[in-house]
Design a protein around this nucleic acid. Sequence first.
DNA 1: GCTACATCCTCTAGTGACTAGAGGTTCAAG
DNA 2: CTTGAACCTCTAGTCACTAGAGGATGTAGC
Lengths: 147, 147
Amino acid sequence: MLSIGKLSGLTGVKVPTIRYYEQIGLLPKPERNEGGQRIYNNTSRERLNFIRHARELGFPLDDIRELLALSDDPDQSCEAIDAIAKRQLAEVEHRLVRLNALHRELERMVAQCTCGTVQTCRVIQVLGDHGLCAADHQKIVSHDIDQ
Amino acid sequence: MLSIGKLSGLTGVKVPTIRYYEQIGLLPKPERNEGGQRIYNNTSRERLNFIRHARELGFPLDDIRELLALSDDPDQSCEAIDAIAKRQLAEVEHRLVRLNALHRELERMVAQCTCGTVQTCRVIQVLGDHGLCAADHQKIVSHDIDQ
DNA sequence: GCTACATCCTCTAGTGACTAGAGGTTCAAG
DNA sequence: CTTGAACCTCTAGTCACTAGAGGATGTAGC
């Protein structure tokens, strides 16, 4: 009933992204019409909405894959689901802490810049010498703040 | 005076990362000893410290490249530097807003889970229906929160 | 039926900032 | 002189897409 373009419009997921999700096995391979173009139904639409929403909340695709698998078994305990959601919550909280520290440091640095010459620029000084930082920002690995 | 391993130990930047920075032209090509191994001096060390610190504060490598170029011209106005720092601050603030919205939504979702069966799982319900969300989280594109 | 033109198809490669690994060479200590 | 750590280059992988080439199909108006 739905072309890939229509499905894209309805879910807000871009066409190449839908194909990508199919390619990595997150969406089942849909039927095709005579010309070989994909046709979707409302089940695909719900599944894609679920994926989109979970992505918006920062869940990685592997977690979403697992959530989808778990949600297909309605009588099971939802412990596993809860665990994934809690893990994601903890991730986000961790990132928030880091990002807040980073924010404080940047703000401090920018506030101290008197906008003279490069020679006296506080931004360059602070970047060159970690000792000029407040003690509250640590090495932030991308893992901490990546989405 | 410094092998790549020593430089790594002194700066906290991993050896392959140092080679990567050289490859993309962020660090100048260092001299080599007879055996072809890289040898660094204190100038390299300062430059690498600068890069590391800027990375810790979330500056993208392209911005760091620009900051390094600007810092080589000490008599210039530091306007351009200030602009980069302010842009980064704005970026971080934007990410904070998004991440906070995301955090609230996740917390709400997890709190509502009564841990019964999948069928009644609030997490699955909310993920499947954006309408169940508080109105404060929007589509978050990776650009918003990526580091 | 014909002509545009939008939409679709597959495939490959690029993004950012690294990280991992293969397969080999050089250095430093004992 | 041997051992093993540290170094070298090169390629490919990570995550979640995005962009583009080059071509096929679908649809609306005439």
